[in-house]
Computed example of a mutant assay.
Amino acid sequence: MQAPPAIAIMGPTASGKTAFAADLCRRLGTEIVSVDSALVYRRLVIGAAKPDAAILASAPHRMIDIRDPHEIFSAADFAREAMPHLQDLAVRGKVPLLVGGTGLYFRALIEGLSTMPAADAGVRAELKARMAEEGLLALHAQLQALDPVSASRIHPNDPQRILRALEIHRVSGKSRSDWQQKSERPAFPFRLLSIVLAPKDRGELHHRIALRFDQMLADGFLDEVRELKADSRLHPDLPSMRSVGYRQAWQHLSGQSDAKTFREQAIAATRQLAKRQLTWFRSSVSSRWFDPQAEKDELDYCIRAFLGPV
Rank of each mutant, 00 (worst) to 15 (best):
I9R: 10
A19E: 04
A19T: 14
A21Y: 01
D23I: 11
D23T: 11
R27A: 10
I32Y: 02
V33T: 00
S34Y: 02
V35D: 02
V35L: 00
V35S: 00
L39A: 01
V45D: 03
G47R: 01
A49I: 00
D52W: 02
A54S: 02
S58R: 15
A59D: 02
H61Y: 04
H61V: 00
D65A: 04
I66C: 03
D68L: 06
D68E: 12
E71N: 05
I72C: 11
F73V: 05
A76P: 07
A82R: 03
A82E: 02
A90I: 06
G93M: 08
K94L: 13
L98H: 01
T102N: 08
R107M: 03
L109M: 15
I110W: 13
T115I: 09
R124L: 15
A125E: 15
E126P: 01
E126W: 10
L127Q: 07
A129H: 13
R130T: 03
R130Y: 07
L136H: 07
A141R: 14
A145F: 00
L146S: 08
R153D: 02
N157A: 13
R164C: 14
R164A: 15
A165R: 09
I168E: 12
G173S: 09
Q180W: 13
R185W: 14
P186A: 10
F188S: 11
F188T: 08
P189A: 12
L193A: 07
L193I: 08
S194R: 15
G203V: 04
E204Q: 14
I209E: 07
A210E: 14
F213R: 09
Q215M: 08
L217C: 13
L222E: 10
V225Y: 06
R226P: 04
E227Y: 04
L228F: 00
L228P: 04
L234D: 10
P239C: 10
S240F: 11
R242G: 05
S243G: 15
S243Y: 08
S243M: 10
V244C: 13
Q248R: 09
A249E: 04
W250N: 07
H252K: 07
D258G: 05
A259D: 06
K260M: 05
Q265A: 05
I267G: 02
I267D: 03
A268D: 05
R271A: 02
K275Q: 09
Q277N: 02
S287E: 05
R288K: 07
D291L: 07
Q293C: 12
K296P: 00
Y301K: 13
A305D: 13
F306E: 02
L307D: 05
